[in-house]
Amino acid sequence: MFNIRDTKNPDFRRKVLLGHVKPERILEMSTPEMVSDQRQLENEKIKKRALFECERAGAPKATTDQFKCSKCGKKETAYHQMQTRSADEPMTTFVTCVTCGKNWKFC
């Protein structure tokens, strides 16, 4: 009931009223499923940032001039690789610019 009455979450109430979410399904839904679309995007950003920070903190890094920073244009970077998806997928490379601190990743 809190999620349906929440004034900051009009999306969920609208989904229930329009029939996109059946009333009996509400009993089985988790809290993250009921939050507003805006809050879901914010939560996803928080998760990605936390994962990036966690992975970045513990893994050993190597320095290279192979990558160019899109923010400052320098080629002074540190990187590490980690298997973040299934074993048949390529490893993800996490890069940090030593000069300005910008972080990015690619597969």
Rank of each mutant, 00 (worst) to 15 (best):
K71R: 10
G73P: 03
M82C: 05
Q81Y: 07
K61M: 05
H80I: 07
E76H: 06
S70L: 00
C72G: 04
D65S: 15
K75M: 13
T63H: 09
D65I: 03
A59T: 14
T92I: 11
F67R: 00
H80S: 13
D65F: 00
D65M: 07
T84M: 14
G73L: 10
K71H: 06
D88W: 11
G73I: 02
S70Y: 01
E89S: 15
P60Q: 10
Q83N: 15
R85C: 10
T77A: 12
D65K: 12
K75Y: 12
G73Q: 05
H80V: 02
Y79K: 05
Y79Q: 04
R85L: 09
S70N: 01
S86V: 13
P60L: 05
T64V: 04
T84N: 07
R85M: 14
T84G: 06
M82R: 15
P90R: 11
T84E: 13
K71D: 06
D65H: 08
A62F: 04
K75A: 09
T92S: 12
P90C: 11
K61T: 02
Q81P: 04
K71A: 03
Q83T: 08
Q66D: 08
E89N: 13
T63L: 08
S70C: 00
T64G: 06
R85I: 02
P90Q: 06
Q81S: 12
A87Q: 13
K74V: 07
